[in-house]
């Protein structure tokens, strides 16, 4: 059995008012200091080229994807989030994805797909938000995944730069 000895309060403490004033002084002091709270989601998170958000497919200026559906990202994906079916094209690059599906609920944003890609076709974007009402809605197809080269350019530059180090 432990006996806890209660501390006897001093007069100032018993008066209550000085302690209130001490607390309020902290409040008022902080009011004039710079704010550290971020008003998410009104104020989005700052991102840069190192941000590893959701993977996105790069669309070339000619309007088709850079992806040739080689399946290396599918093979590299540790979460089995990617499913690809290929089809033939008339272009010089003979093959393109017919279906490119990433299950965003499975995706763990590891970036292996980006690393495996031999065609600079898949990059981790700065997009981080994910919400939906059905499981099916998280299966992103080509229409939801494709982004213009300009949008993905900072990340592309970054990946090229770090690859040069090796």
């Amino acid at each position: 059995m432990v006996i806890v000895k209660r501390k006897t309060l001093t007069l100032a403490e018993r008066l209550y008012l000085p302690e209130i004033l001490r607390g309020l002084s902290i409040t008022f002091r902080k009011m004039f200091q710079p704010k550290v709270t971020r008003q998410y989601p009104e104020e989005p998170l700052p991102t840069n080229e190192v941000t590893r958000g959701q993977p996105r497919l790069r669309e070339l200026t000619e309007g088709h994807l850079a992806c040739v559906s080689c399946g290396l990202c599918e093979a590299a994906c540790p979460a089995y989030a990617i499913t690809i079916d290929g089809q033939e094209t008339d272009r010089f690059i003979e093959r393109e994805p017919e279906r490119f599906e990433i299950d965003m609920l499975r995706c763990i944003l590891c970036g292996f797909c980006e690393e495996a890609c031999p065609k600079e076709a898949i990059f981790m974007s700065t997009e981080l938000e994910l919400a939906g009402f059905t499981r099916e809605s998280f299966k992103y197809g080509i229409d939801k995944l494709k982004r213009s080269t300009e949008e993905l350019a900072p990340r592309m530059e970054y990946i090229k730069r770090i690859n040069e180090r090796w």
Binding site: S69, C70, G71, E74, A75, I84, D85, G86, E88, R95
Partner: peptide, 9 residues
Amino acid sequence: FRFQARVWN
């Protein structure tokens, strides 16, 4: 079989 599947799948 052209572009039907990647063989490791």
